[in-house]
Simulated assay, not measured.
Amino acid sequence: MSENVKPNSLQAWILAARPKTLTAASIPVMIGCALAEAHGHFHAIPAVLCFLFAFLMQIDANFINDLYDFLKGSDREDRLGPERACAQGWISPKEMKRGILLTTILAGASGLGLLFYSGWEMIPVGIACIIFAYLYTKLAYQGWGDLLVLVFFGFVPVGCTYYVMAHTWNLPVTIASLASGLVIDTLLMINNFRDREQDKISGKRTLVVRFGAKAGLIIYFFLGFTACWLCFYFLGQGKLYASLLPQIYLLLHILTTARMARIGKGKALNVILGETSRNMFLFGILLSIGLVL
């Protein structure tokens, strides 16, 4: 593939943005919008701005991760995941830095638009998103990746999407935020499970590196299982479908976990990466539909 990509071309930037990862950015915003609709607070314009901010921040984080791993020398020939733009020579480090700056500015601009619908209290949240987009890769090397996913793919996007429309926060938002963060963390876990040997060489202390492949497989399963279990909270809110529909995801999650265990290691685990992305997107859709019904 790298031979067919022209340096600094549009195709190169699209590949560097990793469009498949935008699933993870869309799920929490979608759930936040569904909660707002369920409580009679949904508004289209702030919803669009929330999606835009989430997408731009995800792309920004992808660019930063691409550059950081290249400069650190982590993208070696034994890399098992998708090819990286800087490592493949598609985008030079200098141009990537410019791309990061531009994406950060665009994300900030979309975030400022949300102030018209919420308040100045959202500024620290936006600043924190930008700061941790820059710090994420470095912190992930110290084993903080899973916690950051829970915060920035759970509580921040679900809760803040709801907040800019409803101007409040409640327990259903907290439960949905936690479920969102847990299910999206399965994507990080399969990445870390696949890359455990390379991460160990690179000095990246993920949970899988620290506790082993078996622990990573168990954690992967229980992340999805716990997210589904949390959805039963909505029975007490009179949301039967929000409790039952996400359980469809659990069946697929079990099958994917079993397949992940059979494969065990190597590039073949990229199939599990694709299934995990599909499964968690289905979870987001099913929970959102259930909340609205």
Rank of each mutant, 00 (worst) to 15 (best):
M1S: 15
E3S: 15
V5G: 10
K6Q: 15
K6V: 13
Q11F: 02
A12Q: 09
W13P: 14
W13Y: 14
L15V: 08
T21E: 03
A24I: 04
I27S: 04
I27Q: 01
M30S: 13
I31G: 00
C33L: 12
A34T: 03
E37C: 04
G40W: 02
A44C: 01
A44S: 06
I45K: 05
I45S: 04
A47V: 06
V48L: 14
L49P: 00
L52F: 05
F55M: 12
Q58F: 07
Q58Y: 07
F63C: 11
F63N: 12
N65G: 14
D66Q: 08
D69Y: 13
F70P: 09
L71I: 09
S74P: 03
S74V: 12
R76L: 04
E77P: 14
E77R: 09
D78L: 02
A85T: 10
A85I: 11
C86M: 10
A87R: 07
A87P: 05
G89C: 13
W90L: 04
W90T: 14
I91F: 14
S92D: 13
S92A: 15
K94H: 14
E95D: 15
G99V: 12
L101W: 10
T103V: 14
T103R: 07
T103G: 13
I105K: 11
A109S: 13
G111M: 12
G113M: 06
G113C: 08
F116Q: 14
Y117Q: 05
Y117S: 08
W120C: 12
M122F: 15
C129V: 12
I130E: 07
I131L: 13
T137C: 10
K138S: 11
W144Q: 05
V149M: 02
V149S: 03
F155L: 03
P157M: 06
G159S: 02
V173R: 00
T174S: 02
T174M: 01
A176S: 07
S177V: 01
S177G: 00
L178Y: 03
A179Q: 03
S180D: 01
L182E: 03
V183S: 02
I184L: 15
I184S: 01
D185M: 06
D185Q: 09
I190E: 05
R196A: 09
I201D: 12
S202Q: 07
S202H: 09
K204N: 05
L207N: 09
R210P: 00
F211H: 07
G212S: 04
G212P: 01
A213N: 02
A213C: 03
G216R: 00
Y220S: 05
F221W: 08
F222I: 00
F222L: 02
G224Q: 04
F225K: 03
C228R: 03
C231G: 02
Y233D: 01
F234N: 01
L235G: 11
G236V: 09
Q237N: 10
G238F: 04
K239V: 02
L240H: 09
L245Y: 15
L245I: 09
Q247R: 02
Q247S: 11
L250Y: 12
L251D: 00
I254S: 07
T256H: 11
T257I: 08
A258E: 08
G264Y: 08
K267H: 15
A268M: 10
L269W: 15
I272M: 14
I272T: 09
G274E: 04
E275G: 08
M280P: 01
F283P: 01
F283H: 03
F283V: 03
G284Q: 05
G284S: 08
L287C: 06
S288D: 05
V292C: 07
V292G: 02
L293R: 06
L293W: 13
